[in-house]
């Protein structure tokens, strides 16, 4: 199987094709990645990734397991820094600023680029304290009242407030899997990031909980730029505006979601989305 070069054609489909003036094309660039390589030790896990992710849209990363999509997602808030022996080449600009230049405050970066993980990971604290934690460590609430307001607002945004409002001070670990994941979303939203990275946020959930998360993503894109990794192609088709297809550490194709699923430019993409490979 030959691997396509990072798809110039499809990038141009988004970047330089003035005829298709959809919201997708006119939205400003939020994340601009140029020829980025990523290494685990000596092993190159990402190879020459160039992509422009646009503000206030949902961008989905699809591809088979081990194709690098999660690694790439985690490099957007430098979460890979905590894994020893990892290294990045190339540039990753967020709002025009390179996040990998020396002197970048990683704590500040992660405050702006929030993350929701595949496996829900509430802290062993109360529901309230889970959401309040980010506000506390970043000194984002000046008073008790403000803290309460921000927690409630975040829980409402994550569509979980009504389910937990009577037990805010009970342990978060007592919630169901779907509720825990929405709590983690609320926790990420509380510190008002600009970008929300979601790493297969619904893969461990039942269909009803998944549907709630997907509806939530749809609501959240008004306020946030969302990047979501998913194994589930129906999900990518349902929730995203743009889709990037990764294969063996390369970005094969990146285009409007409807085009990726109906008229992909690359044979490999077509084979993958129709289930013939991967």
């Amino acid at each position: 199987m030959s691997v396509a070069t990072p798809s110039v054609r499809s990038l141009s489909g988004l970047v330089a094709r003035p005829g298709t003036a959809s919201t997708a094309v006119s939205a400003p660039v939020k994340i601009d990645v140029d020829r980025m390589n990523f290494y685990y030790g000596a092993k190159r896990a990402l190879d020459g990734i160039s992509i422009q992710i646009r503000a206030n849209l949902v961008t989905a990363f699809i591809g088979p397991s081990g194709c690098g999509k999660s690694t790439f997602l985690r490099s957007l808030n430098r979460m890979n820094d905590i894994i020893p022996g990892t290294r990045v080449e190339g540039t990753v600009l967020i709002d025009g600023q390179d996040i990998y230049t020396p002197g970048v405050d990683v704590v500040e970066l992660r405050r702006r680029v929030g993350m929701v993980f595949q496996k829900s990971n509430p802290f062993p604290k109360s529901i309230f304290e889970n959401v309040a934690y980010g506000l506390r460590i970043n000194n984002m609430a000046r008073s008790k009242a403000e803290l309460n307001d921000r927690v409630e607002e975040s829980l409402r945004q994550a569509a979980i407030f009504d389910e937990v409002k009577d037990r805010l001070h009970e342990s978060a670990l007592a919630l169901s899997g779907g509720q825990q994941q929405r709590l983690c979303i609320a926790r990420a939203l509380a510190i008002r990031p600009e970008i929300l990275l979601m790493d297969e946020p619904a893969s461990a959930l039942d269909p009803i909980a998944t549907q709630r998360i997907e509806e939530l993503i749809y609501d959240l894109k008004k306020t946030y730029t969302i990047v979501i990794v998913t194994h589930n192609m129906q999900q990518a088709a349902r929730v995203s505006d743009h889709t990037a297809f990764f294969w063996l550490g390369r970005l094969v194709e990146y285009d409007r979601t409807d085009r990726i699923f109906t008229a992909p430019a690359e044979k490999l993409t077509e084979d993958y989305v129709t289930g013939r490979c991967g």
């Binding site: 808030n77 979460m79 704590v107 405050r111 993980f117 990971n121 802290f123 062993p124 460590i137």
Partner: peptide, 27 residues
């Protein structure tokens, strides 16, 4: 303590010390 808990804290902008003392030790 699962690595996911630490990542959850880091993703909120916690420093190493905050993660160790406020998340890992209580957990």
């Amino acid at each position: 303590v699962p690595r996911g808990l630490r990542e959850g804290a880091y993703a909120l902008g916690a420093t190493r010390m905050q993660t160790a003392l406020q998340i890992v030790v209580p957990a």
